[in-house]
């Protein structure tokens, strides 16, 4: 019977952290701890002395983890980024999912792989959700700007809404730009002229 692995997840956002932890728990009975605060990150990880640290690839705080790999750190067992040491498929999947894993040297691959698989699945899901949210936000913002531009055109040229939209579309096509960009330029210019 092997002892449960100790895993630290570095994640600021509570909802994201919960989803990752749930995913990891499904992969087996492990001790999972979330560190959400970036203050004293290296010290707090070292105190827990985990087998695995998982962190968002896009987090600037990742550089702090580099300290854990140095011999002078309180954590005496050397740490390596797992991606160098395992097969290419898993590595690529992790990078695409946006997760980096730091693993204590000597941890056997058969213990590691299920955890990484679970982490990769969750990070990939979160990344997809984040991308969708960003796309939705952007679409909403664009819609708002286009509405304002239409309003400006309707007043300035005394045309109706459909004609205003047609004018925006025509200009965008003629200039090879997006309608939202043309609308933004118009709104910005109108603000400057106020």
């Amino acid at each position: 019977m092997t002892r449960p692995l100790s895993i630290v997840v570095v994640e600021k956002d509570r909802d994201r952290a919960r989803m990752i932890v749930d995913g990891l728990r499904e992969a087996g009975a492990h001790e999972v701890v979330v560190i959400g605060d970036e203050v004293g990150l290296a010290r707090r990880i070292a105190e827990r002395n985990p087998d695995i640290v998982l962190i968002d690839l896009a987090s600037p705080s990742r550089d702090v983890l580099e300290e854990l790999t140095l011999a002078t750190a309180p954590m005496e067992r050397p740490v390596a980024m797992f991606v160098d040491r395992t097969d290419g498929g898993l590595t690529r999947a992790a990078i695409e999912a946006g997760v980096s894993a730091y693993v204590v040297d000597g941890l056997r691959p058969e213990r590691l792989t299920p955890i990484l698989d679970a982490a990769i699945a969750r990070f990939a899901l979160l990344q997809k959700m984040r991308a969708e949210l960003a796309a939705t936000r952007r679409a909403l913002e664009e819609r708002k700007v286009i509405d304002r531009a239409k309003g400006l055109l309707m007043r300035a040229r005394n045309i109706d809404e459909d004609a205003a939209y047609a004018l925006l579309r025509k200009t965008a096509m003629a200039q090879g730009r997006k309608i939202a960009d043309v609308a933004q330029a118009l709104v910005t210019a109108a603000e400057l002229l106020k």
Partner: peptide, 15 residues
């Protein structure tokens, strides 16, 4: 890149 370690890994992995 978001961090120096990420940039180093991008280079190491051929990204």
């Amino acid at each position: 890149a978001p961090s120096w370690s990420a940039l180093r890994d991008m280079l190491a992995m051929g990204a």
